[in-house]
Amino acid sequence: MDARLRRVNKEIADCKNDKTSNISLELVDNSPFHLKGSFPGPEDTPYQGGHFEVDIIIPDSYPFQPVKMKFITKVYHPNVSSASGAICLDILKDAWSPVLTLKSTLISLQSLLCSPEPNDPQDAEVAKHYTTSKGSFDETARYWTQIYAGGPGPKDVKESRVSGAARDDVAIAGLEKAHVDQFEGIGFPRNKVIDVLRRLNYRGANVAQISEDRIVEELLKP
């Protein structure tokens, strides 16, 4: 039998038998070389309670070349692209070793969620958010977990629960509602305000440092 197929089959079977790691693998399109992996968000992190799905493509030269993985579930994390789900992790690139398996790689992803590396970011804006105000970042990450990964939602259930689980663009971007309203009141479209404020990292201590003129200037750019 083809060595690659044998190995992947064995890996899938191993994963099925292993009840302790909570990692699951399933076939996509009935091909053993295109899989969907999933794992629970690690405890004591903003991702706790979420269920994260990963798209897995097994290249022809597997296991001698690394698998291709990206998040299907949207994740708010410095090393994961908030737009595409692309992952920045050394073992998926040059630090890959043939003895690594799908299971061990998914576990590595899980631990990546525990320990972000903001100095080697995939998503610069998220990384900026992480380094400037960790608290606000955690809130957004928790919010994303709640909305996209089916997490339990923020612990302080006073204001944001009013609108239920409806998607709140402002909270997703990790911004203050008052700030967005302020510029929306001037007459700029809401999503553009969110976009600019997020790009400028208008959060926490930065709010005092970025002048309003600067923001309006950015907003006026086509």
């Binding site: 060595a3 690659r4 044998r6 190995r7 064995k10 296991p63 043939p98 003895v99």
Partner: peptide, 14 residues
């Protein structure tokens, strides 16, 4: 003789 009964390659599981 000292070898284990069956060797399974850790890479290809053969």
């Amino acid at each position: 003789s000292e070898e284990p009964e069956s060797f399974v390659c850790p890479i290809c599981f053969d």
